[in-house]
């Protein structure tokens, strides 16, 4: 089973200076804020590895490839992916933001040649969080698509996919290949690898492939969001005071 997980390393938005939001354009350099994995992508990466572990355990062949669209993938991220158990990290050499069609085109052009058994991706990823890319990949590859996935278990050549949709769980049995978009999942953290294992992964480098991306969508405008409200601080000397103040602030609701 060839498992492909699409992921993205994003600036840590909480570390960006407010001024940079005020003057944000597509070219604004946010590198100083550090890079982290998108939270849904991180779940997808770990779910991919768990699938691989389970398949290997039951004597089936399995390989995991992490796939990203980025000119600058920090080395520590690719290293941690290799060390965690990815057999390959593929880096398509283009930066595409705010254009889900183009992102999906480039990723699926690569995946077509792969070809995958399963494609996993985070339900959405910043900057745009469009949530459109995984479904568009499924369209382009002509594969079944499952969104809001919490977990995937291998099941005699098939997969049992747990989706949480609105007020219900949908437990779906499906035969690969398919595309799954991982949403809010209890599997939230990519495993850490021991330093010994990291060292044994040695100098594995991501496979960088050229990618011709279309020019960015023009006429996009950005505005920093200002969520400030006029705040009244209510004094509370004790937690009992605080409880009373909450009820007071709620007014008609208590």
């Amino acid at each position: 089973m060839e498992i492909y997980v699409c992921f993205k390393a994003l600036p840590d938005f909480e570390q960006v200076f407010p001024d940079d939001w005020n003057q944000f354009t597509l070219g604004t350099d946010l590198d100083y804020a550090g890079r982290i994995l998108g939270s849904f992508d991180e779940s997808a990466l770990e779910i991919g590895l768990r699938l691989k572990d389970k398949l290997l355990f039951s004597g089936e062949a399995a390989r995991c490839t992490a796939l990203t669209l980025s000119r600058r993938l920090p080395a520590f991220i690719s290293r941690s992916l290799f060390a965690a158990g990815f057999d390959e990290v593929v880096q398509l050499d283009a930066d595409v933001e705010f254009n889900p069609e183009e992102t999906a085109r480039l990723l699926s052009d690569f995946l077509k040649s792969a070809p995958p058994g399963m494609v996993l991706a985070g339900l959405q990823a910043g900057f745009a969080d469009s949530g459109a890319v995984p479904a568009l990949i499924a369209c382009r590859l002509g594969l079944p698509f499952f969104s809001c996935v919490e977990s995937i278990e291998p099941l005699d050549g098939m997969a049992e996919i747990k989706r949480s949709v609105d007020s219900e769980y949908r437990i779906v049995k499906a035969r690969p290949p398919f595309v799954a978009a991982v949403g809010n999942s209890p599997v939230s953290t990519l495993r850490a690898a021991t330093l010994r294992h990291q060292l044994s992964c040695g100098n594995k480098k991501p496979k960088a492939l050229p990618a011709d991306s279309a020019p960015p969508i023009s006429a996009l405008h950005f505005q920093a969001r200002d969520e400030r409200r006029e705040t009244t601080m209510l004094p509370a000397e004790s937690s009992a005071d605080a409880a009373i103040m909450i009820l007071k602030a709620l007014g008609g609701f208590s």
């Binding site: 600036p11 100083y32 550090g34 890079r35 920090p74 080395a75 520590f76």
Partner: peptide
């Protein structure tokens, strides 16, 4: 270098 990459976003040369 480990902290440069992890805590400072790999902002210095590799």
């Amino acid at each position: 270098p480990v902290e440069m990459e992890r805590d400072f976003g790999n902002i210095a040369p590799e």
